[in-house]
Amino acid sequence: MNGLVLVINAGSSSLKYDLIDVGSAESLASGLVERIGEASSLARHSVDGQDHRQEASLADHGAAFELVLAAFGEHGPDLGEIELLAVGHRVVHGGADFSEPTRIDDDVEATIERLIPLAPLHNPANLKGIRVARAHFPDVPQVAVFDTAFHQTLPPRAYTYAIKRDWREDHRVRRYGFHGTSHSYVSRRAAELLGLAVEDANVIVLHLGNGASATAVAGGRSVDTSMGLSPLEGLVMGTRPGDLDPSLPAHLSRAGISLEEYDRALNKESGVKGLAGTNDFRELQERADAGDRDACLALDVVAHRLRKYIGAYAAVLGRVDAVAFTAGIGEHSPPVRAAALQGLTELFGIELDEAANAAATSGEHRISTDSSRVAVLVVPTEEELEIAREAAAVATS
């Protein structure tokens, strides 16, 4: 498949973009606009190995998109002179309504808006990106690629919470899962690296960034995942706590902590930041190496939670062909990988090659021994490329 796809990832105050040639899998230009709506916004446009930066006052995402188009026009490639196959949009929450990438029309846009209560921090921003792109490229197919779509294959036993029926049905409370684009790409690449057909491979994918999630993938299908109704559940993350006792909101409310304060704390002030005061894992590791007790505890909690999920998902899958680490921490933190796999040799046959794990190797590589019953891989995620490919497939179907 050939063609150029503009990938858009709109945040509440940011606009990230990437122009990708899906035929060569090459990024032709990329960039980021930050601090939209503030007194001074920052923009970076990267093309041909050079970064072009500027400051501007951008009131909204419409103004930011105008700046992006101007950057393409000035520094290239000029979007007015090339033919776009599609514009692919990352959308965080598709609920149970979307199980695959979907061409955007007015009805789809309205459904994404209706799903805002499920992702109040993300879907409104994603909609802003969709609306400005549709306005500027009315004749180009616009495709929504949902973080939740890959996990729509979860069986009811995995996605159903043991709660009242009206909560489940009227309020759509269930496990949805996130980082689906990454889990889809990495699990498929892991199978390919092992020489297995995707439908024959069982893979545990650990997406470890500031946000983190684990997924059990059986034959290319997500069968369990750690994030739930929201991205708060599961693994310990940069600023999110992962699994908690459900009684915590009631307990803290009796101490005078409001629901708004609770929600803000769980999204912005918890995880390793809550444990050690920082969500920078490089700083955390340096402090732990120097003997800092808070940093050591934070890393121990992270690793303990990871081991629990690896063990649980090995039980769910029954047979594991590979454990695949991805995203910033998963790809670049040998100590976190080693700690997560510690003690899993006897029970699961996972044998880490310590030298391979510690080596400063980039790209896809194996970090388990040749005798390990389960392969351990590092697979850099390519979410923008995956979005571009999925958008191109929808646009040409």
Rank of each mutant, 00 (worst) to 15 (best):
L232T: 10
A391W: 08
I367Q: 03
S14W: 02
I257P: 06
K273L: 15
S230Q: 07
P141E: 00
R174A: 08
A250S: 10
D48W: 04
V47T: 13
R134E: 10
V374Q: 11
E81T: 13
T111G: 01
G256H: 11
L69I: 02
V336L: 15
A327T: 07
L19Y: 03
L154W: 14
S230C: 08
M1L: 13
L284S: 14
F150V: 02
D280K: 06
G274K: 05
G88H: 04
V379Q: 12
G95T: 06
K16A: 09
A327R: 00
D147G: 03
I387H: 05
R240M: 05
L259S: 13
E346P: 06
I387M: 04
D289N: 12
D263F: 05
T326K: 08
E386P: 02
D200W: 01
P380H: 12
D51H: 03
H251F: 15
E74G: 03
I367P: 10
H179C: 12
G242S: 10
P380E: 08
A327E: 08
K164I: 01
A360H: 08
L85I: 14
L248K: 06
G76T: 08
A64D: 02
D263S: 14
A255C: 12
P335R: 09
E364F: 10
A133F: 00
G291V: 02
I367S: 03
I163M: 03
S372V: 13
A360P: 15
G49S: 11
G80T: 03
E109Q: 13
M1Y: 12
D97Y: 07
A392L: 13
A388L: 04
S12F: 00
N279Y: 12
V5A: 07
G291I: 05
R254N: 13
A290F: 02
S30P: 01
A86V: 14
R168L: 13
R389N: 00
V186S: 11
T381H: 06
R240C: 04
